[in-house]
Structures are given as structure tokens and as C-alpha cells.
């Protein structure tokens, strides 16, 4: 580990907050998904940093699981984006205000 662990965690926290802000502020579905990606990568930074700090490989293994989970999530959510675009003709999240879908 080349830097204090606190700096790694602060870096991950800033990255996570940026992703959270993107999810909260942007109303386009693609941008919301990009915000989710940023948050997941912040979690990966924290995991790899912890793996280097405690000298255990488990953190890196969990990053691999995180990547698999992200792949599944992106596949499903982009399919939903295409589906919503076909049915509603828009990707603005504010337009999807009916519970019937």
C-alpha cells in the first residue's frame, strides 16, 4: 500500500458521491445508469484498497463478483431502456409517472 488507507477511502467516497449526485440530478435514464456505474466503481476502489491494506486477496475477488453483477445489471437495465423507448418514445424519467408502466 503506497498511500494512507484513509486517502483511498476518501477518494472512493468522493467518487461515490459524484455517482449519487448524477443519479439524483440527471433525469435521463442513460445518465442515471452511468451514475450507478460510477457508484459501483467507487465500491470497487474501496474493495481493492482494502485488499491491499489488509494484504488479503478477498477484496479483489469481490471486485470480480461486483463486475459480474454489474454486467447482469447493465444487460437488464439497457434492455429496459430499449423497451421503454419503444413503448413510450422517451427516456426522461419524469415522464414515467404512471404506475401501470
Amino acid at each position: 500500500m503506497i498511500v494512507p488507507f484513509a486517502h483511498v477511502l476518501i477518494f472512493a467516497a468522493i467518487l461515490f458521491t459524484m455517482g449519487l449526485g448524477c443519479v439524483l440530478a440527471r433525469r435521463n435514464l442513460i445518465m442515471i445508469l452511468i451514475g450507478v456505474e460510477i457508484m459501483l466503481n467507487a465500491a470497487a476502489v474501496a474493495l481493492v484498497g482494502g485488499s491491499a491494506y489488509w494484504r488479503q486477496v478477498d477484496g479483489q475477488v469481490f471486485v470480480v463478483f461486483l463486475m459480474a453483477m454489474t454486467s447482469a445489471e447493465v444487460a437488464i437495465s439497457l434492455a429496459m431502456v430499449v423497451y421503454l423507448r419503444r413503448r413510450r418514445g422517451t427516456l426522461e424519467a419524469d415522464r414515467f409517472d404512471g404506475l401501470r408502466g
Partner: peptide
């Protein structure tokens, strides 16, 4: 979050280099 991280004394160290 940053306050909590800074306050934690165990996170101040950096340990040695690690390579998996």
C-alpha cells in the same frame, strides 16, 4: 463520511506494498 474516515485511527496507516 470523510469525517468518519479521518477520525478512525486504524485507517491512517499505509502498510507495506502488496501484490496479489
Amino acid at each position: 463520511t470523510v469525517l468518519l474516515i479521518i477520525q478512525d485511527p486504524s485507517s491512517a496507516g499505509s502498510g507495506t506494498a502488496y501484490h496479489a
